[in-house]
Amino acid sequence: MLLAAGGDVDFMIHGLFKYELFGQELWITTTHVSILVVMLVLMVFAVAANYKIRHADEVPGGFQNIVELIVEFLDKMVYGSMGKNGKKFLNYIGSLFLFILVSNISGLFGLRAPTADYGVTLPLGLMTFAIIQYNNIKYNKFGAFTGLFKPLPFLFPINLIGEIAVPFSLSLRLFGNVLSGTVMMSLIYSLLSRFAIGWPGILHIYFDVFSGAIQTYVFCMLTMVYTTDKMPE
């Protein structure tokens, strides 16, 4: 059903390996492979960083500097927008940030970015939704439900939709941005394959690095904003 410019424009998810589970036909796709590569990279990085920090030097240099830079950046971002509530969320936001960032940038290394698959971003959005609603009920008790009827009772449907739309708008935003980058890059590589020498690198910087970093930041910021919104001051 590839409608746009038939032929060798290729940015779809491919099935690599088929297996059956409880009568369902399931596929191992390119998304699984790239997500495994991303996880492997993050794990190796985490182990190396852990080893380095355990054997930290007095004057940091090289790798230790990078690790400290990342941790300080995440600390600043989380505490800056969540205040004293930030301590409990640092783990979640930090791992979310690193995972989405490395996923988005993986397009640079020839992988199909895992976040360009709605099956990856929707669970991320649903996880955020679960955290938001857990904190909503934890801090507001019964007010989580009566809050839907404020300021006026007949606004209940709109408030309900506003709550439920959060995971979908979060995940669609990330998915749409990364997918549009992937589509643009593959269009350039397949339609202009003769001329695409060197200069698409500039577009890679925009579509993969810049847009990916912005969307990562926005996803984490929105998660924090929505969560802080439900907490008492």
Binding site: M1, A4, S169, R173, G176, Q215, Y217, V218, M221, L222
Partner: peptide, 28 residues
């Protein structure tokens, strides 16, 4: 950071249009 957040929220409607275009093209 405020500007980026606001821009990201404003972008959502455009992405809904993009989602519809993709559905029409690839999962009609």
């Amino acid at each position: 950071s405020t500007m980026l957040l606001g821009q990201a929220v404003a972008e959502t409607t455009g992405l809904y249009g993009l989602a519809i275009a993709f559905i029409l093209l690839f999962a009609n």
